[in-house]
Design a protein around this nucleic acid. Sequence first.
DNA 1: AACATACCTGTTATGAAATAACATAACGGG
DNA 2: CCCGTTATGTTATTTCATAACAGGTATGTT
Lengths: 163, 163
Amino acid sequence: MDMHSPDCTHEDGAHPGLGGADLRHALVDAEHRCSDIQERLTAPRRRVLELLLEADGPLKAYDLIAAFGEDGEPAKPPTVYRALEFLERLGFAHRIESLNAYVPCRMDRTGHAAAFLICDCCGAAEEFEPDFAPGRAAAEAKGYAVKSVTLEARGLCPACQAG
Amino acid sequence: MDMHSPDCTHEDGAHPGLGGADLRHALVDAEHRCSDIQERLTAPRRRVLELLLEADGPLKAYDLIAAFGEDGEPAKPPTVYRALEFLERLGFAHRIESLNAYVPCRMDRTGHAAAFLICDCCGAAEEFEPDFAPGRAAAEAKGYAVKSVTLEARGLCPACQAG
DNA sequence: AACATACCTGTTATGAAATAACATAACGGG
DNA sequence: CCCGTTATGTTATTTCATAACAGGTATGTT
């Protein structure tokens, strides 16, 4: 499922991970957004979000499981999967289906549709704001009530086309 | 991952499976399309395509594995996964990432992007022809060279909204 | 026909991803 | 404080997918 070449040496340049003050600020912001809607950013949820924000690219669930403990102790799978479910539900993270991997949300507003440009060479995944007007029209024409939409475009990022 | 309610009793009405002459015709047509491009619709590939065409909705890989043998003997996983890879490559089938499931292609022309309306209640998956002009524009703006695009819209089909 | 070779299949085993089920603990309102 | 609700901890299992290699089959060439 992981389609990008293992030997690709290009920078995974789309989204360098957060650290230091940026990371702390993002986490505090998430706390606020949670308490505003009476949800709890508990320790395991916060830890998984932190790992996603620190990463340079999409992380697999078992990457998160392995990295979970500050001391190197892995988490149990349900711990991480539950946290991911929560983060997705609140719009703090997205699952990329075609990679079986997760990224923190890069968009300002919440509740949006998730759309990604995925580089098959370096593995970068760039979120963008899609215009789904045509898709919605097709759905309505067939009578569907659409609740969520995901779009995943695979190809090569600028750096990997050049290299 | 299988998000649709197990207790849903609605008809899975989008695409009743093929049978009899329709099925035979579809398989013969596939044979022709293969030989036209010097590809071989071998026995296991043909069998997997047949199972997909007969089905009323998306099939999981292990559904195909279990149903593979005419005599009830299951296939070995690689047999089915290889056939699916072939069928996808030639555009005879699509993988629906958010279901871990497969459907036969319902579109006339080949090489198109895959887009689905998926009912979370009855599990129906309806293929449609998306208009990706907006997405392509976004990709080009970021310098991506897009090779393939998949879109999956989750929601409720007309029957399940009514029921 | 004999051979080379490219492609496809059969088989065993394993790896990777996700969830079921149930027990325990923490929060928050009455 | 008590209880319902929500979240976590833990064990085990299920589901999904591929690696690796041996063996077979179609095809073109001489």
